[in-house]
Simulated assay, not measured.
Amino acid sequence: MGKDNQTCVTEIQLLGFSDFQSLQVLPFVLVFTFYLMALVGNILILIITIIDSVLQTPMYFFLRNLSFLEICYTSVTLPKMLVNLVSETQTISFAGCGAQMCFFILFGITECCLLSVMAYDRYVAICHPLQYTLSMNQIVCAWMAAGSWIVGILVGFGHTISIFTLPFCGSNRINHFFCDVFPVLRLVSIDTHKNEAAVTTTTVLFILAPFLLILLSYGLIISTILKMPSAEGRHKAFSTCSSHLIVVSLFYGTGTFIYMQPSSEQSQGSNRFLSLVYTVLTPTFNPIIYSLRNKEIRCALRKTIGRKMFSQVTSMG
């Protein structure tokens, strides 16, 4: 890095919890509880979909990827968030801030792409069932999942490098819980309109484009379902899609609102709390949504728990 680009900031203060100085215990307990629930729920789905032979299908292959993503996604921000809740300084190192932003973008973009891949999987399964086995074979599924990860890696590292090679010689305080893109850009000492434009372009390409593909897939799915003669068939088809639709609504509802609205000081306060939804609540609710609304996962859970209890009784006997 050249002399002009050398950073003056060695650590960044995260002021997202400054409003809770007198109530540190309650936010800590809530965040820790949701983080633990997110870890347990997603790890459980990850294990179930690996060990159960019935769940070795493309839909559950992508669900495994989603659960792994959620584990990584929450672990990027929440552990540091918990530390800051009980710390007086509430800081993160400059390098740590860059790493947090990089992986947050990486996992977020990957999830956008993966959700669109999952929608395409449901489209093929419902609209072209006779071609499903051929169209969604193991190689195709592996490439789709890998493509989602590759896009996330390229965007995550690309944005982080372009932002953190800029000069940071002013304030080191951001009004957020973690190192998100726009709050960090406000710390840069030079004009950042080009960087903001690049972030907006990426948002359109890799967040809205997958969302439009999801809408297109479900438009075709709904059209096909409504033409089904059997009410039972329509109900079964809708039930296989409902969990994914709820997850998409939660993830995109808050994310799109934050990243597509104009940046302003007034929006920072509301953005902090909306960020809590998609960094804390959404990863926690996803495994609950899939387990409660998916008969095959419920059966696999009962079977696995029953097998474990039986083995414990046998070993005690």
Score class of each variant (00 low, 15 high):
Y60Q: 04
F104D: 05
L301A: 12
S264P: 03
P27T: 15
L134Y: 01
D19V: 03
T284S: 07
I126H: 02
I51G: 01
V151G: 08
Q56M: 07
N294D: 13
P210R: 02
R293I: 00
Q56T: 00
T10L: 05
I47W: 00
C299A: 13
T279S: 12
G2P: 11
L220I: 06
S267T: 14
L55S: 09
A99N: 06
E296L: 09
R64S: 06
V76I: 10
L208S: 09
T133F: 04
S53E: 00
G96T: 01
V124M: 05
F104E: 09
P167V: 08
D52K: 00
T192V: 15
L44M: 09
L46R: 05
F34I: 12
N172D: 08
L69N: 04
D19I: 09
P229C: 10
F164K: 07
S275H: 03
G306F: 05
Y259H: 12
A38S: 15
L39M: 10
F310T: 01
V204T: 09
Q56L: 03
D52V: 01
I207E: 06
S291Q: 07
T203G: 13
Q131S: 13
V83A: 15
Y259K: 06
L245V: 01
P58F: 03
F251Q: 10
F20D: 06
R122H: 04
L66W: 00
F251A: 12
S311H: 03
T304K: 00
S275T: 14
P129E: 12
L39G: 10
Y290L: 09
D52F: 01
R64M: 09
L274E: 02
R302Q: 14
G233R: 14
K194N: 15
L130E: 06
F32I: 14
K295W: 04
N175L: 10
I190Y: 10
S22K: 11
N271G: 13
L301I: 15
S22P: 12
T192G: 09
P287L: 03
L39S: 12
I190E: 13
Q13V: 10
L115D: 02
F257Y: 11
Q100H: 05
L26K: 08
G306R: 07
H128R: 12
L130W: 05
F94A: 06
I174P: 13
V54D: 11
A99G: 08
I139F: 10
A99Q: 07
T7C: 14
T304E: 00
L69C: 02
S223R: 01
S148L: 07
F28N: 02
P79V: 07
A231S: 06
P27W: 14
F94H: 07
S230N: 05
A119H: 01
H128N: 11
S291H: 04
E196K: 14
Q90K: 00
E232A: 08
V86E: 09
I150T: 12
Q138T: 03
C97N: 04
M136R: 07
E232R: 06
I109W: 02
T165W: 08
M59G: 13
I105R: 01
I288Y: 07
R302H: 14
N172S: 09
L14T: 00
L15R: 10
L46I: 05
T279P: 05
F62L: 15
N195E: 08
P262G: 01
S270T: 15
Q261G: 11
I258G: 00
T279F: 15
N172W: 02
A145T: 12
D52H: 04
G152W: 01
L187W: 02
H159Y: 02
F62C: 15
